[in-house]
Amino acid sequence: MISHRAWSERLVLIAPYAWLAVLFLAPFAIVIKISLSQSALALPPYTPVFDWRAGPDAWIAGVREFSFAAYASLAEDALYLDSYLSSLRLAATATVLTLLVAYPMAYAMARAPARWRPVLVTLAIAPFWTSFLIRVYAWIAILKDEGLLNHALIALGLIAEPLHVFGTDWAVQIGIVYSYLPFMLLPLYNAIARQDASLVEAAADLGAGPVAQFWKITFPLSLGGVLAGALLVFIPAVGEFVIPDLLGGSDTLMIGHTMWTEFFDNRDWPTASAATVVLLALLLPPLALYDRSRRRATEQPT
């Protein structure tokens, strides 16, 4: 219990706790509050409905003035519904694609000679240290119609006409796979590398071929890593802004991008806030799942 702790122990707990309460939790309350106000041509561009200093009577009056106009406009505007659906679809497809790229790599890393493994893990994490923006930007020059990929493919005689990838949903998916690959690689690698090698040997002794060894033992035992990696890619990808903005086309719809436009260009803060609340609500189930899988991994009884 907290009251019996030394002051130093209280400090290490209370400092980060208070910080996160003010700068992580409280902002969500404010987002919810503003999503319930009406937009106005003012600065800040919404009518405040709630003044914390005004006292209980004014609070009740404020609650009466809560407006669901922003949520109504979300529901009426097909742009929003399409953005949510399209974000979920793009993020889900890209997550599957990332898994397909990452699994063979993680498997090869985990089965590489032991002295190579730290080098391979470092190589897999290193791109994470370079700017996300720059890594996405690098793909513009590759994917453009007159870009490096089309130059190379035409020079090799594989295609006659340039492929039109840049500015499509495909470019967005390539961008997500590329940017989030390290997040998928690490949990998969950990899940495969810590498996007991004798299990596969036992299966081989009992006559299982390589394919059966993989599907009956290695893969099922790595499912925890698959889930963790998929969530680490899917959750941030749903709200992605930079990738659809730089690689997508005018018909690419993603909710992070729609919110950004609503907020910065249309200056409709209540609608942007309502869109954020809905996005957060959509992401709560995967976030809870992530929290649970993380707790299972880190807080096992010792």
């Binding site: 959750i235 992605e240 957060l280 992530y290």
Partner: peptide
């Protein structure tokens, strides 16, 4: 670690 950055940015 996983929260989309637009959500964190907007709420802050």
């Amino acid at each position: 670690l996983v929260m989309p950055e637009v959500i964190m940015g907007l709420s802050l």
